[in-house]
Amino acid sequence: MKKLALTAALALFTLPAMAQEDAVGWWKTQVDDGAYAHVEIKRCGDGMVCGWIRRTFNDTGEYQSENIGKPIVINMAPQGNGSYRGQVWRPSNDKIYVGKMEIEGAQMDLKGCVAGGLLCASQNWTRIQ
């Protein structure tokens, strides 16, 4: 009985850690200007995550874009409950925006914002790994 109670107590303490949706992994971007990418997101210092373009695709298949290897998700800091804040780069116009990520399961809502985060454009990414 003590073993069962201890197991239940440990499970309760690990629930908050499991509730935080982790961005680390591989993601497929939404099509933007006729192309999409596979982005690898990894930890990049003091609890933050960053993402780099690893593969690019268009309507004819995979191609070697000049953007492969470039960072697209920059210094995203976790805010709790699958939410992150940092910066995002949009390759099609070569601009960096205030970035917001919301992760729920295998879906990510990624926003690039201006005007202090008041006006945002959004993309939906899907986890592939």
Rank of each mutant, 00 (worst) to 15 (best):
S65E: 08
S65H: 01
E66Q: 11
E66S: 10
E66K: 13
N67M: 07
N67Y: 04
I68D: 04
I68P: 00
G69W: 04
G69S: 01
G69K: 02
G69L: 03
G69D: 07
K70A: 12
P71S: 07
P71Y: 14
P71L: 14
P71K: 15
I72E: 11
I72K: 06
I72D: 00
I74A: 07
I74P: 02
I74M: 10
N75F: 05
N75V: 03
N75Y: 07
M76L: 15
M76V: 05
M76A: 09
A77N: 12
A77T: 15
A77C: 02
P78I: 01
P78Y: 13
Q79N: 08
G80W: 04
G80C: 09
N81P: 00
N81W: 06
G82L: 09
G82A: 11
G82K: 04
S83E: 12
Y84W: 07
G86V: 13
G86F: 10
G86D: 09
Q87M: 12
Q87N: 13
V88I: 15
V88M: 01
W89A: 05
W89C: 00
W89S: 05
R90C: 08
P91C: 00
P91K: 02
P91L: 00
S92L: 04
S92G: 01
N93V: 08
D94C: 00
D94Y: 00
D94F: 00
K95T: 11
K95Y: 08
I96M: 11
I96E: 15
I96R: 15
Y97I: 08
Y97S: 08
Y97K: 06
Y97F: 14
V98R: 14
V98G: 07
V98Y: 11
V98W: 06
G99Y: 03
G99Q: 05
G99I: 14
K100I: 05
K100S: 07
E102F: 07
E102T: 10
I103T: 05
I103C: 03
I103P: 01
E104V: 11
E104L: 10
E104H: 11
G105I: 11
G105C: 09
G105Y: 09
G105A: 08
A106R: 10
Q107G: 05
Q107D: 12
Q107Y: 02
M108L: 14
M108C: 09
M108I: 08
D109S: 13
L110R: 03
L110D: 05
K111G: 03
K111D: 11
K111W: 02
K111S: 13
K111R: 14
